[in-house]
Write a protein that binds this DNA or RNA. Structure first.
Length: 443
RNA sequence: UGGGAGGUCGUCUAACGGUAGGACGGCGGACUCUGGAUCCGCUGGUGGAGGUUCGAGUCCUCCCCUCCCAGCCA
């Protein structure tokens, strides 16, 4: 589409039609094209076209379908550090459009885990804000409004295909070893045909009409330029037949209407960016900056999952890990400040963090190093705080009858060098108290 | 398979095109009754093949390997 080609210097997303790609004229014009691109890139770097007085606004958007995964925690942490280091806002949004798997308990647990880590949010559940509601399930009218706008503009159409028809399309695609691309049966339907199905009461979804030909390009803050050919993508669903909106549509409307300036999220969402960018354009929203962070991996280099052992923040909390150790370790799993220092407080991380130093390749979660790092942080705790932490534990678990006093103080000082986790102190104290002192003393 | 993203010691992470370092782990030693902490030493790497260059982990080409996505999940 020629109109899309006419990108302004301030545009970061560029769609290239096939005409421009045609050789050999393309070769001749490549220098000119590169100059234009360089100019446009420079312009976009120097001119922040994003909203709210150019303020940095980032978001962490967990789905409340389970506990906070360490991968999610790391994503939240990078967003938090980015916002705080730029003097921006850290927004929390609950993505609960999956009504069957989302629970209130999960949401509460996620919020507690974020708080425990020290990642306080500026807007979202519990604190409010100017861009609410901050749960997707409470924003349905907004999605409906924008979906209808897309229907009116022709970017979206009603698709009456049954599940059976869609399955057949998928099987055919599979035989051809291609991804299941919608063949566009209802994309060209007449108003009469549509009206007929509506009168019949046939269920339908809303499908986004993907432009034919060309490509789309983003400039990822971590990975550089990423592009996709549009012919690899078929028309995709944005609203289900039950009226529930689909994730890619929700997240785009949410990020745009919440004035999010930087979308910093896990790499698994990189393929989604193509769809979302098309929705941004169709709705006339300004495109945010994107940064796709690598995944945290298991030792076999697959995505870290439950079958690999502990994976949720809550589990590590129960095992006795300190929040400051978790935060320090997770930050270094994919980021470094360029020096050989590895010990940071959350405050120091805010001061040091830059998105440019986030690594592209996935990192394997190393429980052994986390334990060592917890020991370092444990021994860095001031004596009075450590006494309070461990003394209260000894009392609440019944090992001792008092949580403070000279005995507790001395015992902690004596034992702290021999433990890495707070619960290790239980056994350490028991060992100390069971020492055969009388048999050892000389008379 | 299609699309996309990646590849530096076992793991994490450094290294403006200019001596491949640090941390964890492992092994050994000092301290110590033992362990732990602390300190010291050792081990160990640029996926492969070409190319550009005085010089390549870094730039280019090809190959190999790994990961993510391909739900009316998120």
């Amino acid at each position: 589409m020629a109109s899309i080609v006419a990108a302004t210097p301030w545009s970061r997303i560029r769609t290239i039609t096939k005409l421009e790609l045609a050789p050999p004229i393309f070769l001749q014009s490549s220098v000119y094209y590169c100059k234009r691109r360089r100019f446009s890139v420079a312009a976009s770097l120097s001119t922040n076209t994003n909203k709210v007085d150019g303020q940095v606004r980032v978001r962490f958007a967990p789905s409340p379908t389970g506990n906070l995964h360490v991968g999610g925690a790391r994503t939240a942490l990078f967003n938090y550090l980015f916002a705080r280091s730029k003097g921006g806002k850290f927004v929390l949004r609950i993505e609960d459009t999956d009504l069957e798997r989302s629970t209130k308990e999960s949401e509460e647990a996620v919020l507690q885990d974020l708080s425990w880590l020290g990642l306080d949010w500026d807007e979202g559940p519990g604190v409010g804000g100017d861009y609410g509601p901050y749960r997707q399930s409470e924003r349905n009218s907004l999605y409906k409004q924008y979906a209808d706008k897309l229907l009116e503009s022709g970017h979206v159409y009603r698709c009456f295909c049954s599940n059976e028809e869609l399955e057949k399309m998928k099987e055919i695609a599979k035989l051809k070893q291609l991804p299941p691309v919608y063949t566009g049966k209802w994309a060209t339907a007449t108003d009469a045909e549509v009206q007929k199905e509506l009168e019949r009461g046939t269920p339908y979804t809303y499908r986004f009409r993907v432009p034919k030909g060309g490509s789309l390009k983003i400039s990822d803050l971590i990975r550089g330029e990423v592009s996709w050919n549009l012919d690899t993508l078929g028309d995709f669903v944005i609203m289900r037949s039950n009226g529930q909106p689909v994730y890619n549509f929700c997240v785009t409307v949410d990020d745009a209407t919440m004035a999010i300036s930087h979308v910093i999220r896990a790499e698994e969402h990189l393929p989604n960016t193509l769809r979302q960018a098309l929705i941004y354009k169709a709705l006339g929203f300004s495109m945010p900056y994107f940064a796709h962070v690598s995944l945290i991996l298991a030792p076999d280099r697959s995505k870290l999952s439950k079958r690999h052992g502990a994976t949720s923040v809550g589990q590590f909390r129960e095992m006795g890990y300190l929040p400051q150790a978790m935060v320090n370790y997770l930050a270094l799993l994919g980021w470094g400040d360029g020096t050989e220092n590895e010990f940071f407080t959350l405050k120091q991380l805010v001061e040091k963090f830059t998105i440019e130093r986030v690594n592209k390749s996935g990192a394997i979660f190393d429980s052994t190093k986390l334990r060592w790092m917890n020991g370092q942080h444990l021994r860095a705790i001031p004596s009075n705080e450590l006494t309070k932490l461990i003394g209260e534990r000894w009392k609440s678990t019944g090992i001792l009858t008092e949580s403070k006093g000279p005995f507790v103080d001395e015992a902690i000082q004596l034992l702290k060098d021999g433990i890495d986790l707070v619960p290790d102190s239980d056994k350490a104290l028991s060992n100390l108290l069971s020492y055969p002192l009388r048999d050892t003393l000389t008379r």
